[in-house]
Write a protein that binds this DNA or RNA. Structure first.
Lengths: 93, 93
DNA sequence: CGCGCCCATACCGATTGGGTATGGGAGCGC
DNA sequence: GCGCTCCCATACCCAATCGGTATGGGCGCG
């Protein structure tokens, strides 16, 4: 599992559609297909139902979505914590 | 930034030493050197002080450590959430 | 000074990841 | 039913990433 996969997953879940998600992520659609599938394989359960209209979250996917967002948010805070620390050393540099 | 880098960082911080951390992580020492440096480069601040005795956390590193552990813990919960969900579908299979 | 313990660098091979091109299913208008 | 459109999936290729071995350089200790 990679952080990119988590972000891809969140965006695909939000867009409900690989094509639009790909544009938002500035990647092409095939890598998205692969990464989402790799994520599902690793987790051992499908996260989306593939319909002719797009990708819709399954129950497992809904549960995972909350946690995935949580992980990404905590990651942002981690980055922020380092910036704060260096701000202490170099206040207004 | 990658999840592997976060885990590498946590273990190096705990061991205070690249060699021991490498053993615990089942990788060799050079990749650790590189990944830790890449992490520092991306964050824009050094996390460790390199001494002849090993690697000791700097203030920025200490702050980051807490958050890094948090991210990894949330990731475990995310995995767990999917397992729970599939347990509902397949209780004791 | 020779040895041990550190981390850093150089180089190489294997894996991963993204891109283009293409296919196949499902709905819609005519 | 044909053609058009909008989906996702697959095949194939190239570039970037990652990990491993080999090696070097600093530092302390007997």
């Amino acid at each position: 599992m990679s952080l990119a996969q988590l972000e891809y997953f969140v965006v695909v879940a939000e867009e409900g559609n690989l094509g639009r998600a790909a544009k938002r992520l500035h990647v092409s659609q095939p890598p998205l297909t692969r990464q989402i599938r790799a994520l599902e394989d690793e987790l051992g359960a499908p996260l989306f139902a593939r319909t002719p209209r797009g990708m819709t979250l399954l129950p497992a996917g809904r549960r995972f979505l909350t946690h995935a967002r949580d992980v990404l948010e905590r990651l942002d805070r981690a980055r922020g914590a380092v910036r704060e620390a260096s701000d202490i050393d170099e206040p207004t540099s």
